[in-house]
Amino acid sequence: MKNQLKAVIIEDEIPAARLLHSMVSSLRPQWNVEIVPGSVDDAVAWFTSHDHPDLIFLDIHLADGDAFDFLSAIKPKCAVIFTTAYDQYAIRAFSVNSIDYILKPVEEKRLAEAVSKFESLRHQYWTDSEHYIEMLLDALKHPEKKYRSRFLISSTDKYWPLNVEDVAYFYSENRTTFAVTPGGKEYVLDLSLNKLEEELDPEQFFRVNRQMILNVDAIDRAVSSFKGRIKVMVQPPFKSDIVISEGKTSAFKLWLNY
């Protein structure tokens, strides 16, 4: 095993690759971190002529294909952490045991969690890398995942189900998560938005910011706002503006158009 751990970044957007390189290098300065060209053909050529690293940060969508094409062609002997702007694809990868993913824009805390997970499970990749990659490829081909369908709502002396499809949006306020129905009724949930994001169908729900997850059926319209942001109007109306940051606008548009 190499003395210095090596990680490579395969990302088709150069600014995103440089930012991730800076974040990983800051988080683990003892690592050797390198950016590899962000296309399937170029990445395959690089892996053909270089020793395989210990870890790949792999963008789902590359310039001339996707992660499945790259993994099928090269079958790298190392671990993979996916990066993606659209979490439908991330959920597919995450369905495989010991695989992790990071949603764009990359947050330092989430990156640290993924790196720590890799370090704790690193030995598994070395002992059975072939089986690991086969599981990974199978997950990308067969993205089966059962999403949450209901919540148990409780009051002082009774309980009743609330179907996920009957929620217009979820929001967090003062460390409390609320589910809001199309009729405007609010219910308190014993779940964080981070946990909800993992359990909800990404085709139907989108994490627009740190405070809110929207059901696509609740969106009335979306308009351009300042500095490349998008302002979203929903039904029932929310008590404050719902603004999507510039870093999430591309993912939001892709989600609406899926």
Rank of each mutant, 00 (worst) to 15 (best):
M1K: 12
M1S: 13
K2H: 08
N3H: 14
I9A: 01
A16H: 06
R18E: 14
H21K: 06
V24G: 01
S25K: 09
S26L: 08
L27C: 14
R28S: 07
W31N: 04
V33Y: 04
E34F: 08
I35F: 03
S39D: 07
V40A: 13
D42E: 15
F47V: 04
H52V: 09
I56N: 01
I56E: 05
D59I: 04
A63W: 04
G65P: 09
A67R: 02
F68Y: 12
F68G: 01
A73C: 13
I74V: 15
I74Q: 10
I74L: 13
P76E: 07
A79I: 03
F82W: 09
T83R: 09
T84V: 10
Y86D: 09
Q88G: 12
Y89K: 08
A90S: 14
R92K: 15
F94D: 09
D100L: 04
Y101W: 12
I102C: 07
P105Y: 00
P105E: 01
V106F: 10
E107W: 13
A112Q: 09
A114V: 01
V115G: 07
K117I: 05
L121Y: 10
R122N: 15
T127I: 14
E130V: 08
I133A: 14
L137P: 13
D138Y: 14
L140W: 03
L140Q: 06
H142T: 13
H142W: 12
K146P: 02
K146E: 13
S149W: 07
S155Y: 13
K158I: 07
Y159D: 10
E165D: 15
D166R: 07
Y169V: 00
Y171D: 03
S172Q: 04
E173S: 15
T176C: 10
T176A: 12
G184P: 05
L189Y: 13
L191T: 01
L191W: 11
S192G: 11
K195E: 15
L196M: 03
E197T: 02
E198M: 05
E199G: 00
D201L: 11
F206G: 03
F206A: 00
N215I: 04
N215L: 01
V216C: 12
D220G: 10
A222E: 00
V223A: 07
F226S: 07
I230C: 05
K231F: 03
V234W: 00
P236M: 02
P237C: 03
I242N: 02
I242S: 02
I242P: 00
S245A: 00
S245C: 02
S245K: 00
E246L: 08
S250E: 14
S250P: 10
A251Q: 10
Y258L: 15
Y258G: 12
Y258T: 12
